[in-house]
Design a protein around this nucleic acid. Sequence first.
RNA 1: GCUGUUGUAGCUCAGUGGUAGAGCACUCCCUUGGUAAGGGAGAGGUCCAGGGUUCGAGUCCCUGCAACAGCACCA
Length: 642
Amino acid sequence: MPAITLPDGSIRRFDGPVTGTTIAADIGPGLARAALAMKVDEVLVDLSREITADAAVTFVTRKDAMALEMIRHDCAHVLAEAVQALFPGTQVTIGPSIENGFYYDFATEVPFTTDDFPAIEAKMREIIARNAAFERSVLPREDAIAFFQDKGETYKAELIRDLPASETITLYRQGDWIDLCRGPHMRGTGDVGTAFKLMRTAGAYWRGDHRNRMLSRIYGTAWRDQKELDAHLHMLAEAEKRDHRRIGKDMGLFHIQEEATGSVFWHPKGWKLYRTAEDYMRRRLDAGGYQEVKTPQLVDRVLWEKSGHWEKFREHMFLARVEEEEKTLALKPMNCPGAVMIFNQGLRSYRELPLRLAEMGQCHRYEPSGALHGIMRVRAFQQDDAHIFCTEDQIAAETVRFVELLSAIYRDFGFAEFRVKFSDRPATRAGTDAVWDRAEGALRDACAIAKVDYTLNPGEGAFYGPKLEFVLRDAIGRDWQCGTLQVDFVLPERLDAEYVDVDGGRKRPVMLHRAILGSFERFLGIVIEQYAGRFPLWLSPVQVAVATIVSDADGYAQEFTAALQAAGISVKLDLTNQKINAKIREHSLQHVPVIAVVGRKEAEQRMVALRRLGGDAQELLPFADAIARLQAEATAPDLRTA
RNA sequence: GCUGUUGUAGCUCAGUGGUAGAGCACUCCCUUGGUAAGGGAGAGGUCCAGGGUUCGAGUCCCUGCAACAGCACCA
């Protein structure tokens, strides 16, 4: 006699085991039509599942966010059936729902291409129109393995073999097509609807391991209705518009070419942006108690052998040899050994600690070709690096200090929020458990003091110590790890760093590796996408465009331009023989934040009309006021007084 | 690195084995105008590179390079 409690608190009693379908029908025909699945005591199950005991039941309809996930999951099944119908001999593997859609990995001799999509989508529509019910069945493990093995589905058989013994093996049937699946599913294939689209193909390793066979993956997106699908496609188009590679080209910021893959040619405007960021960082670091240093690009392998990089990082290092010498040099992939070399000059005292050595360190790393991505993932980049030599007792205070600095800097660049990941001791590590306890404890305490919420990243720490990772999310929703703070007990040991303690004895310092932007290249890529190229005034490479309406105003425009330049503002003077409309349009497309328009009237009255990017209002100001106003607005956030 | 796709004017892209195209940008001329495209003319090409098939290759085939998407990688 199950008593079913509904979300509104009402209770319905049934004579015996009852399915969701029956309950929904009992409540009303509207719900019977709308219900796709149900939650029984908070567990999502098929509508057709029998309920035998008292339970709280909530129905899932198309309106619920949860329906979206089911639509995508079901759509993946429909995709798999369609593919197997069209391409006999193709094996199915896995096909989950993911953010915004789903994918399915197939084992096939000939990989799929987007040319296959129209046929596959047509077949999918057929399957959806047929609206075969999803039917769940439970099979003993050995039977299930035999079933898939007989069908030639070796990947499915392998999956079942590897499922934990406690797991119930369930199959789902839709018409004649059967898949191994945990479920749950909606009522039938028709519930998927028609708001889906296959997006792209890709290779993907079986079980995500590059030693395994490459499968052919098809990505799709699916939504509750056409309107949602259209909105999603529109969002993708918008995201593409703010792609930093697109904007970099359109605004003439930088380029990359074949002869130097993974390295950036910064154009004047791009380099201006870079320098603005760099100058800002220098001021922040100076104010933050850091001393800047510079260490060599080319360093003998002997040092890399000592530091451990030769062993652990060699395949990522660019080597350089010269005919005349036996030596092998390497372009530095990291700055840390260089910093230790500076620390090691002379005898250090505990009085000098914490010693914060910053370096705008140019690094080269041989990244796999497939990893390169615009200026975000490159082979030559500059880090805003620093190494803090301190005692164990100073770790917490230095961490708090660092997080404060990092927060202020991210805020100034327009990132109000960031995530923090705490990576603790990995399985293979250097140092005793006692040392790890202290290092992790110090970091945890510091996070508490600095009021930093973090998610634990178990076992992901560096072999030499725990670390914090600071992650920003870009405009296209990708996560980028920018900042990092790593506690290192190993490198000071390997490179023999030491200081004289109060008692006159020699001690090893702890080394904190830390970066805030990470790499300038990557960070600026993120900033470009964050602002879609419409930078705040202080960052904008061209801050003001001075545009004339008539050539009679040229002299006055030149005078105003010179005054802006003298005030430290980056300005572009436009005396071209074009109508003001065309000039406005051109500079607006270049995302110049302020256009100062001068015509005959302004020249006679010694005024300027300021026009802001994105607006059409004009502000008429006297010459000197305009200069003062723009100068104040263009001031970097760390230099503002008010 | 792996799988797939792509590579034509500065940019965005058409191009069916038979004389290389468009729009925008660029240069020049006309136009001096009031807040997102004034008009006209002109110039601009190793069709990614190298092989092959063919009477003939931008087009078909092979190899390489690069970019893009994803996977793996990001110590």
